[in-house]
């Protein structure tokens, strides 16, 4: 297991370098004025341009400048906005809220998504199966920001069941509605995937063996079928985490959740490019880390991987 982790970590290094290089190049090293549209509606103040040119070594050769930037990132230095705010500090403040929101969303994916998928997969062709199929298709086709707006309007404003906006108080209860909205799309996919995977595995030879062993139906499904069926679902939840982070920008914006997504949302409106790129870089790194974690869980769920 230890060697597997080490190998996976090593494999991650080129990906991290690649992604940050792409982001860095896009932001600072493409032809044209790198400071266009970076400081709100007006052009950047000359002092800021000078400071940033110095900070990001923009006078150096592109690749050299990139590695200096990478060095800064590794020490947690994400630069400053033109208003003098430290991007790193802002991120640190917003980060726990987004983590909490993501956890709420994943809890919804697991509880409702996997739950609905199991119900549908065990009774294919039944009323509940069709209900799950149709409702997930509808959810998949409605963009998250529409679902967010509509739920905010009805559950938040009209009926007042949940707070319409979160504001400064990011308590678990306040995060239920935004968490659900954030999870909605992935939840639908998780339900469908669980359903298909379960239905496929029920026909597997080893399930037939389990029946032939005289195991009770509950055990055949709960132990033998379920574990195998959940392998692709876990992989999906991990791979989809990136979409979840992207969705957080929208969801946190709508519900005014003080997280990283909201920071990006506000920075876009304020045309504060440094903050946007810093925050997105962090989210991308988190995404890569989560994928590593999922790979490890995957290796534990499916022994053929880690031992192979």
């Amino acid at each position: 297991m230890g060697r597997y982790v080490a190998r996976r970590l090593l494999q991650m290094i080129p990906v991290v370098i690649g992604t940050t290089l792409i982001i860095y190049t896009l932001v600072w090293s493409l032809p044209g004025d790198p400071f266009a549209g970076r400081c709100g509606a007006r052009p950047c103040p000359p002092a800021y341009v000078a400071a940033m040119t110095d900070k990001y070594n923009l006078d150096d050769f592109w690749l050299v400048a990139y590695f200096k930037y990478l060095g800064n990132l590794l020490t947690g230095d994400f630069g400053e906005t033109f208003q003098g705010l430290s991007v790193g500090e802002e991120l640190l403040r917003a980060y726990p809220t987004t983590a909490k929101l993501a956890l709420v969303a994943i809890a919804f994916e697991i509880l409702i998504g996997i739950g609905a998928g199991i119900l549908a997969g065990l009774r294919r062709g039944s009323y509940i199966d069709n209900l799950v199929l149709v409702s997930t298709l509808v959810v998949v086709s409605i963009p998250v920001f529409v679902i967010g707006s509509v739920l905010q309007l009805f559950l938040g404003m009209r009926w007042g069941i949940f707070p319409a906006t979160v504001g400064g108080d990011a308590s678990l209860y306040n995060l239920i509605l935004p968490g659900f909205v954030l999870a909605s799309l992935s939840l639908a996919y998780v339900a469908r995937l669980t359903r298909t995977s379960l239905a496929e595995n029920r026909r597997a030879d080893y399930v037939r063996t389990a029946v032939a062993k005289g195991l009770p139906q509950r055990r055949v499904i709960g132990v033998h079928t379920m574990r195998n069926s959940l392998i692709p679902v876990v992989t999906f939840i991990g791979a989809d985490f990136g979409a979840l982070l992207g969705g957080a920008i929208v969801t946190e914006g709508i519900f005014n959740v003080p997280g990283v997504g909201n920071l990006i949302f506000r920075s876009i409106t304020a045309r504060d490019g440094v903050m946007v790129t810093g925050a997105v870089t962090v989210l991308v790194l988190v995404f890569l880390l989560v994928n590593l974690l999922v790979d490890l869980i995957y290796g534990w769920l499916d022994p053929r991987i880690s031992h192979g």
Partner: peptide, 24 residues
């Protein structure tokens, strides 16, 4: 494949956001 991995490491919405912010 490795090049694909690198781009795959950037979620669609986040990456598109960066590109578009860089070219206002």
């Amino acid at each position: 494949s490795r090049l694909g991995d690198v781009f795959f490491g950037i979620p669609l919405l986040l990456g598109a956001l960066i590109v578009l912010v860089s070219f206002p």
